[in-house]
Amino acid sequence: MQPQKQNSKPKEQKMLAEKASIFYGSFRAVADVTLPVYERQITAIIGPSGCGKSTLLRAFNRMNDLVQGARVDGKVLLDGEDIYGAEVDAVAVRRRVGMVFQRPNPFPKSIYDNVAYGVRLGNSRISKPELDSIVEQSLRGAALWDEVKDKLKSSGTALSGGQQQRLCIARAIAVQPDVLLMDEPCSALDPIATIKIEELMQTLKERYTIMIVTHNMQQASRASDYTVMMMMRADRAGEMIEFDETKRIFTNPRDKRTEDYVSGRFG
């Protein structure tokens, strides 16, 4: 399923799922998804609960590997290379494809250490000034610097929910990934914190490719460039029923079920 290229110029594919099916043991959670993820665009995944949105998202940085018995058939390419290839290390994939989770989960460490942790792992001999500047840039990148610059040594868990989530974003971009996966990043936040994250996503997309799972239709329509619509089949496997530019999904979808879902008639 290719999006209809109307007036927009063709985009680079950063990632591509090719006939990807995800299994938990013998249970097929997601079936045959073929999905391009365009560079420096925001791709939203929507669909009713239990249709495998999060599972699909996690397949893009091999987070499903942590679940015993999980396995992916088909391919998921990052810059043309299959991230499930035999010689590819999941840790290396996650350094390039960062993740922000549903509930803000800062480490119970200082704000500074939260951001610096991932950087130190990759480069244990990094100099203090260099690390300081990465921390500052990452916190600025996550629009959090001005709020925390005077209390970098205080605990990350003492921040408000919205601040915590932006701290998690700062932590993710500190290791300079190419892609950011966001799994319902605003579902635990109030509307004001939500708007801040959405605005932040618009700035982040200038440098990063973003995928976001959301239950919030307005969010998907406001914040994303492309939208994936997923549904659960009769055998309980999730499938992708439509992929297109967000504008089109919300105004003139091809599939009747998408139309029903985005207009709030079910789901």
């Binding site: 993740m99 989770f101 989960n105 480490f107």
Partner: peptide, 23 residues
């Protein structure tokens, strides 16, 4: 130990041992 802590660690590309040791 909450699973979210493990996920946070793995999510920024820590290995299993680093996750156990640091978190």
């Amino acid at each position: 130990v909450p699973n979210s802590l493990r996920q946070a660690s793995y999510g920024i590309g820590a290995t299993k041992w680093e996750t156990i040791r640091d978190h």
